[in-house]
Design a protein around this nucleic acid. Structure first.
Lengths: 177, 177
DNA sequence: TTTTATGTTCATTTGCTCTTGAACTTGTTG
DNA sequence: CAACAAGTTCAAGAGCAAATGAACATAAAA
């Protein structure tokens, strides 16, 4: 069984250094995601493995080649899918109920997914906190009140600027550059 | 002793809710830095406390009011200074060798500091890794070589775009917006 | 110089996130 | 249907970064 796995191993065998290349990609993306800290390293590894493969890979390809647990692979793939960083090909295969996975290659889509699913929710929360801060500031009197309101207002300005910039980012990184 | 501490406590006493306001700022910045994951939460707390204070605070003000260890306070302040997020006022006071700290309020400077000190170094490292990837790609032959080179090249394009965008960020978030 | 106040360093501990692995669900084959 | 294969869930453990605190520096006061 395990046709996909066999197919991949065949490729690995007929193209020398394929595993080094894969390993390099896996390491690269593993570290890359760690820098941002929004997702666990194993998620980066999975994406890296898919990125290095000319063909889509199956679930078992992934956890076998990366030597991680099925649990990690499952969770990691779900996360990647939820963010649109990975899509599935051939929903159901001839044998078993296997799906095959490919990496999203559009930087714009990758960023969009991460921003929408991970960053935006937090942005909403921060809006609430800033409102609370403003209330607290408003509770004071005199010089102190003035000072606190100015600080609270500045934070809101920062937030607005960041909010404005995020969509621009998407455009800048999109296609042309 | 501890004039600064007394001064601050006096302020706290004569302006009701000052500690709530401070706590809110401390919490806000603590979480904010956690989102990016580049610096420990205690660093955010310190910045938050300074941000909430109308007057500069001393070293002992900081670790006492935040109820963190001297070690954390020392390391956190050094980090903040190295990034330009905090500056010192009145290098040496009348009593002891106390320094007082104030927060940098310019968003542009804050971002510049973090980008220069924390992000740029990593960018250099990634350039090296991508070069290595390209070599590995070059080692293959035929279709496989072509595939790998295309992937390696795309990563370099991404990197270049990101590198281009970072300075733009500084401008967009700087003063006007 | 001795003592006291202020700040730093770093080995240890704490706390938290990621990973694991085994039990469970769901679907497939004989 | 039974037996198996594929994938998910989640409690428990491992690994790691952050915080601690005590020993160590350094400078002012006595």
């Amino acid at each position: 069984m395990s046709t996909a796995s066999n197919a991949v191993q065949a490729i690995v065998q007929r193209s020398p250094g394929a595993d080094e290349f894969s390993r390099a990609c896996v390491g690269f993306f593993s570290e890359a995601v760690q820098l941002f800290g929004l997702v666990p390293p194993s998620v980066g590894q999975i994406y890296g493995l898919l990125y290095a493969s000319p063909e889509p890979l199956s679930f078992s390809d992934i956890f076998e080649q990366l030597d991680i647990s099925k649990g990690s692979a499952s969770q990691g793939l779900n996360l990647l899918r939820s963010v649109g960083a990975v899509y599935t090909v051939a929903p159901v295969d001839a044998n078993g109920r296997r799906e095959y996975f490919s990496p999203e290659l559009s930087l714009r889509k990758l960023l969009r997914g991460v921003l929408d699913e991970r960053v935006s929710p937090l942005a909403g929360k921060s809006a609430g906190r800033l409102a609370h801060l403003r209330e607290l500031a408003d509770g004071a009197r005199g010089r102190e009140r003035k000072f606190r309101l100015s600080r609270a207002q500045q934070l809101e300005i920062w937030r607005r600027r960041l909010k404005t910039v995020v969509p621009v980012l998407g455009t800048l990184l999109g296609s042309r550059a």
